[in-house]
Every structure is written in C-alpha cells, then in structure tokens.
Design a protein around this nucleic acid. Structure first.
Ligand SMILES: [Mn+2]
Ligand SMILES: [Mn+2]
Ligand SMILES: [Zn+2]
Ligand SMILES: [Zn+2]
Lengths: 139, 139
DNA sequence: TTTATAGATTATAATTGTTCTAAATTAGTA
DNA sequence: TACTAATTTAGAACAATTATAATCTATAAA
C-alpha cells in the first residue's frame, strides 16, 4: 500500500520496521520535515531508532529519487516525498516550508549553457520570506 | 577610492587595516570567495588576522547591504560584492560560482502572496550543474 | 603625559546538523 | 536452526560558523 516501501523492496533492500515506519511517515506528508522532526515523531513508537538510521534511509530514498532533499537554508535539510515539479516558500522566522504550485514560468538558460558550455542539471528556485502566521504574531 | 570602505566609514565604523584589506579584496571581485579563501589570500600580508574578523566584517557588510551572502550549498557561504540583480551557477564538483546575467524572466509570485498572505522578500534562483572545466576533466 | 573608554581584533571554545565508525542485531535464506 | 550480509545503533568525528573573553587600539578627557 506504500509506494515508497514497495520501491525500496524492488531495489533489493531489506524490509525493516524502521524503513517501513519512515516510509509510512513520509507517505503523503506535505510538511517537509527535517530528520530531527521525523526522529522526534517516531520516537514514541520506535524508542530505539537512531538518527543514523533516519539519515541512512532518507539518503537511500533520495538516491533512488523517491524523495527530494530541500536545502533551503544552511541549518537543516528538509525532506519531501512529493517528486512532482513544484516550488517552495521558506519562512525565515519559523523555518516552515510551504508548497508553491508551479505553472511553467521558470525561464530556460539554454543560452547560458551554449555560450559558457557549463552544464545545468537543475534550476533551484526558493521563495524566501515571512509566513502568514509569523506576520500575524509580529503585530 | 573604495566604495565599500567609504560606506563602512559612513556607517560610523572604525577604519581598521583589516577592514580596509577585506574591502580591497572584495572590490570588483567576481570570484565569489568564501571566508576561508579570503583568510588564506590575506594571510601573507596580514598574518595575525583572525577568521572571526573576516566573519565579523563580512556580516557587517552584508547587514549594510554592501555585499551579498550566497548560500548555494550547506558547506560554505560565498560572498559577492556585486549587488546588481544577477543569478548564479554553482558547480557541484568544484564548488565554483559563476555569474549568470539576468534578463527578467523570473516569474512573479504575486498571486501566491495574495492567496496565502505569506510575504515573499526574495526569490532565490540557483543553477546547479557541472562547470566547463569539470566536464572536460571527466573525459 | 597619563588615564579612561569604547570599539575592534584575536585565539580559542562552543555549537550544530550531518556523516562516520565499529560493534551488535536482524532479515532473508538454506 | 544456523549462516551471512545487510542494517541498526550509540557515540565519536567533522567542519563551517558563532560566541566568548582577554587583549589591543585610537581617541578623548584629565
Ligand atoms: Mn514540497
Ligand atoms: Mn555574483
Ligand atoms: Zn513563519
Ligand atoms: Zn567545476
């Protein structure tokens, strides 16, 4: 029932309770959690789970392109199981990450690539600002 | 003769040899150096200069909006005295940063702001890829 | 010339998210 | 059940940046 988990299986990886817990946690999750948040939330059910396991599993999933790593600031990596093309808004007060529906718009840089012969693999766009909640609190 | 330094002066800061050295180093510099690179390059002339001074000075300059801090990856901050609107290409092999002339093109997100009432302060665009030199080396 | 003071610099310690390591445990298989 | 390679775990290591506290500097009283 969990696509993430099924893909891990297909990849020949062992099906451990930890991996299932992390896959279940991420499934349909739009909150862009950090490793620390996942650890904290899984702790009650899996008190022995290590941060290393969280990072290992997330790294594996990212390598298999099942989730994406969002490096929106230097403090922490956020993880996103939504692999569809969309952008992110990052609140620099509370560090929350909000999905931004993406409708084309990002210009192409083919000209830059041709002129310079640098190869662009990925255009990273992030909207930085202050979220609704934090704006309200400040008043 | 150095605009950066003059602005520091205007800001009421003391004009120290360290600050002048850093301002001179950055003037017209398009290499997007890190704090460590600046430290290394100034060491011969200023062997007693501390990393703390480099960071303090760069932070002050960034706060005064005389330079920008580029957080293109989690490892290091790159500094750029060019405050004009332009984008950056980042090579994930050698970590070099290359200016990309910007001709409008970045879509506006007014609609997102109105709908969600989150406030966008800044749209960060980074082109991630492999630079010319690194592409050649791999062949 | 001394003393005072505020700000700047320095060396070093602390911080912190992530990665590494090595030992213990487990899943999958026979 | 027993084997083995993969996985998990606790804790150490790492590295860029930030914080701290002592020292230094320039300038201004006294
Ligand atoms: Mn998302
Ligand atoms: Mn630049
Ligand atoms: Zn917020
Ligand atoms: Zn390169």
């Amino acid at each position: 029932m969990n696509k993430l988990f099924d893909r891990l299986k297909e990849g020949g990886l062992k099906l451990t309770p930890q991996r299932l817990a992390i896959a279940d946690y991420l499934k349909g999750n739009t909150s862009h959690p950090t490793a620390a948040k996942i650890y904290e939330d899984l702790k009650p059910q899996y008190p022995s789970m290590s941060m290393a396991t969280i990072y290992n599993t997330l790294s594996t999933m990212a390598e298999m392109e099942l989730i994406q790593e969002l490096r929106l600031h230097k403090e922490q990596i956020h993880y996103d199981p939504d692999m569809s093309h969309h952008l992110h808004f990052f609140c620099r007060h509370c560090h929350s990450v909000i999905d931004v529906p993406h409708k084309e718009g990002i210009p192409d840089f083919k000209e830059f690539e041709k002129k310079t012969t640098n190869r662009i693999d990925h255009v990273s766009v992030a909207l930085i600002g202050v979220c609704k909640k934090c704006l309200q609190k400040k008043q």
